[in-house]
Design a protein around this nucleic acid. Sequence first.
DNA 1: GCAGGCTTTCGATAACTTATCGAAAAGGCA
DNA 2: TGCCTTTTCGATAAGTTATCGAAAGCCTGC
Lengths: 234, 234
Amino acid sequence: MTSDSAPPTVGRPRLSGEATGSPRLDIIREATALFVAKGYAETTMTEIARSAGLRQSSLYYWFARKELILQTLLEENRSSLALATVLEAQPGPVAPRLYAVLHADVLQLCSAPLDFYEFERVARLQPQNFGAFFDDYAQLHRMIESLVRQGVDAGEFDAVDPADAATAALGLNEGLQRHYRLPLPGVLSYSADEVCRLSADTTITRLLAHRDDLAAIRAAATELSAGAAEAGES
Amino acid sequence: MTSDSAPPTVGRPRLSGEATGSPRLDIIREATALFVAKGYAETTMTEIARSAGLRQSSLYYWFARKELILQTLLEENRSSLALATVLEAQPGPVAPRLYAVLHADVLQLCSAPLDFYEFERVARLQPQNFGAFFDDYAQLHRMIESLVRQGVDAGEFDAVDPADAATAALGLNEGLQRHYRLPLPGVLSYSADEVCRLSADTTITRLLAHRDDLAAIRAAATELSAGAAEAGES
DNA sequence: GCAGGCTTTCGATAACTTATCGAAAAGGCA
DNA sequence: TGCCTTTTCGATAAGTTATCGAAAGCCTGC
């Protein structure tokens, strides 16, 4: 099984002409489009195969199980954890750091090809293959909990329980990504930017001891995100 | 097709002895237990049939499709709408009324036999059969939006956008019921009462202009719920 | 008492799903 | 030329929801 980006030169030819690129990447690309359009459970291996230009059984040469396609195309699940790890250890006021983490998390959830809860459902059915997902989630929870604790200790935040606040913040993030992704009829829908701001605004406002300068916190959070991105690139 | 609570006296006898009660109610009871234990998608008609004491194909005499079982056992979806309708039109301070509505909504979500998002997924695949669900959801959203607007107008709440605040409140409710129902490994789990309080506390605290008396709001909300329940019974 | 109708259950089966397996069809290489 | 590797394919197993006609009892009218 080669992993090049060019179509293979060996092997039995396809009935539907030759592949345009690497079969593996073609499959991932077409599967991503189908998952975005219809969700994971409603997308069949036969449909993925037809889009990718081969037969259903041939898919299993590249991915032994359907969920391995999902696992591959979502390898960087919840990578906002990287930003959280950087900002959690950074000095300075807490609110902008937490705002940046929350905003980045919702943005990632909204940008993913699959609803968070549908992904979680698949992961829960195959815990042995998705251990990294659960580890990342627990660690993101700890990072947010730590940021809240810093804010409480500094008097910047209300005297809340940090673990509860982290659970509420993540629950709100996940619940709002769902509203963005699958808006219910009769309730107005939101853009990704709007839900990111709504979620981060809501959590931060609930925590702040003094609510005078939300706009300043937003601006500082944007700077922090940009700075962390530059540092990550260098 | 009879609807009594006694086992039928007519019809071909079952291979596995006679039924103990109404076949219809037996099926609903057994399906409920299975949905609670394994979820809807992971429960098969064969399992429901085995638990209810008949064969898979015989289920279709009582319920033409699997989702009709779900629809029947969840007929009062989101009945916290009744409390919201009463309290939305009631005079007096807003915070206790909104707290009571939010608390009751989370309690109902946590008490239901199925995860809200899994139910919503089934409803979305069969909108014609679940129109009442979407109507109820939209109306609950409007009730909460109205309560928030009342609070803002009275100066009791921050000057937020009522529609956004309602979306965030419902998103938090749904996200936290998920954390109650399916806790992720590595993150501590909550009881139903704890998530109800966490969700309502979080939303109300974010909205309140002055946060001095959350305990008093909780107490007043409890009284309002009890009063509305009594009025509903009489 | 029994013939026909009604109610309920059953077995067989269709259509669709994920997944497995051996065979087939090429290129590369001795 | 003949064999090995890579890739694809068709056939098929096992599981799912759902349909259909037949079977097996009661009940009613006569």
